[in-house]
Structure formats: structure tokens, C-alpha cells
């Protein structure tokens, strides 16, 4: 039997601290996407394609560009992007909820468009620019969509939140002055079971104007 551990050690819940200084106005301007790196990836990818090479079913070595950084990993061709992100790269922000392209919890942004990462093979994401929730904020500043999610209490259990934030960011990226109807239709690929849409709608509406 083990004894009670001290209660005051760093618990695992929310912490103020280095991150407390986020503000409505500050956020990072993209995360320095190395165009060179992406170009190089594209070439590697083309090289594989050009040989008409059959790969797999054993693991294949691939390179992914995630949040401006390149990651090399070995994946079976069947491994989905969400599983590569979560299980191999510990990018656990995006969630796998339905695993069938029907809920949006796994939403990431690929080449500027929101996509379901449960429904894209990791190998198919090679040569593309992948943005995940981990890449849109820094230690001292959240993205305006995230800031507004907090301001409007747009989360309960929070499990759908990363997907909704990314869908919201995709709306804001494309349209600095979306109407409420634009916001709603941009969120039509995401489900929240706890029922946070009232806050989410307001948050995305405000954030788009703010990031403009």
C-alpha cells in the first residue's frame, strides 16, 4: 500500500503561470512555415510517386510537415493522420471521436482547408502543410479563436473544443467579417455533445473580426 502523496505538487489540472498573460489582442502570426522545407517534402514525395513504387503493407518511412516542423516517421499505409498525430507524435489535441468523417473532433487544417484527420491516410498527408491545434498558439499567447472560446465559455467537457477551434480558425482565416450565418455554416462539420454552440458561435464571430 502506498501512502498519500502530497497534495500541493504540480497537479494535472489547469494552471495559471507562464501562460497567464494571454491577451485578446496578441497572438502569433503563423508559425514560420518553412516554405523551403515544404518544397523539399514535395520533391521527396514526387520522387516516390515518379517511380510508381508500391509501398507497404509494412511500415513506410514518411515525412510530415506539421506546424512548420518536419517529422519523420514509419507508418503502415493504413495509418490515418489522426492516429499518426496522436499515437506516434503525441499531438493529442485533435480527438478521434467517430473515426468516420461525421463529427469534426479530429479537424486539422491541411493546405489551408479544414479536414477530418481521421479520414486522411498519414501517407497521403505527405507534402502538405498540416496545422494542428498545438501549432496555433504559443506559451504566452493564444490564437484569437482560442481567446474568444475562453471569453464566451465555449467549452464544457472540452473534448470537441480543439476540433471546433480549428474549424473556427478556418472560418476566420478565410473571412474576416463572417455573418452569423457564415459562422454557423462553417461549423456544420462539427458536433459538440455537451452543447456549447451558443458560446462557440459568438467566439468565432468575434475572433474572425479580431484576427482580421
Amino acid at each position: 500500500m502506498s501512502s498519500n502523496k502530497p497534495h500541493d505538487g504540480p497537479g494535472e489540472g489547469p494552471r495559471y503561470g507562464p501562460r497567464k498573460g494571454f491577451s485578446r489582442r496578441t497572438f502569433i502570426e503563423g508559425v514560420g512555415i518553412g516554405a523551403g522545407a515544404v518544397g523539399a517534402l514535395g520533391a521527396a514525395d514526387q520522387a516516390r510517386a515518379a517511380t510508381n513504387e508500391v509501398v507497404g503493407p509494412d511500415p513506410v518511412s514518411i515525412t510530415l510537415s506539421i506546424n512548420g516542423k518536419t517529422h519523420k516517421l514509419d507508418v503502415e499505409p493504413r495509418v490515418t493522420l489522426i492516429d499518426a498525430l496522436r499515437n506516434m507524435l503525441d499531438h493529442t489535441g485533435a480527438k478521434k471521436v467517430c473515426d468516420r468523417a461525421t463529427c469534426g473532433a479530429c479537424t486539422v487544417i491541411v493546405d489551408g482547408s479544414p479536414v477530418y484527420s481521421c479520414t486522411m491516410l498519414a501517407i497521403e498527408a505527405e507534402g502538405r502543410r498540416i496545422e494542428t491545434i498545438e501549432g496555433i498558439s504559443s506559451d504566452d499567447a493564444m490564437h484569437p479563436v482560442q481567446v474568444q472560446f475562453v471569453e464566451h465559455d465555449a467549452q464544457q467537457c472540452g473534448f470537441c473544443t480543439p476540433g471546433l477551434v480549428m474549424a473556427g480558425k478556418a472560418i476566420a482565416d478565410r473571412n474576416p467579417r463572417p455573418s452569423m450565418a457564415d459562422v454557423e455554416s462553417g461549423l456544420c462539420g462539427n458536433i459538440c455533445r455537451c452543447g456549447t454552440y451558443v458560446g462557440v458561435r459568438k467566439a468565432v464571430y468575434e475572433a474572425a473580426r479580431e484576427s482580421a
Binding site: P14, F22, R86, D90, K95, T132, Q146, V150, Q155, T161
Partner: peptide, 21 residues
């Protein structure tokens, strides 16, 4: 009040059981 755990959740940093590796 803003939810204390709001930032962690909005950042995708909150670790759920499902996220433990």
C-alpha cells in the same frame, strides 16, 4: 468568470484519459 480550465481546453493541452501516451 472565465472558466479556469478554459485556456487548457482551448489550446488542446488538456490531457484526457484518451490522450495518455
Amino acid at each position: 468568470h472565465n472558466r479556469v480550465d478554459g485556456p487548457e481546453k482551448a489550446r488542446g493541452d488538456a490531457k484526457y484519459s484518451y490522450d495518455r501516451n
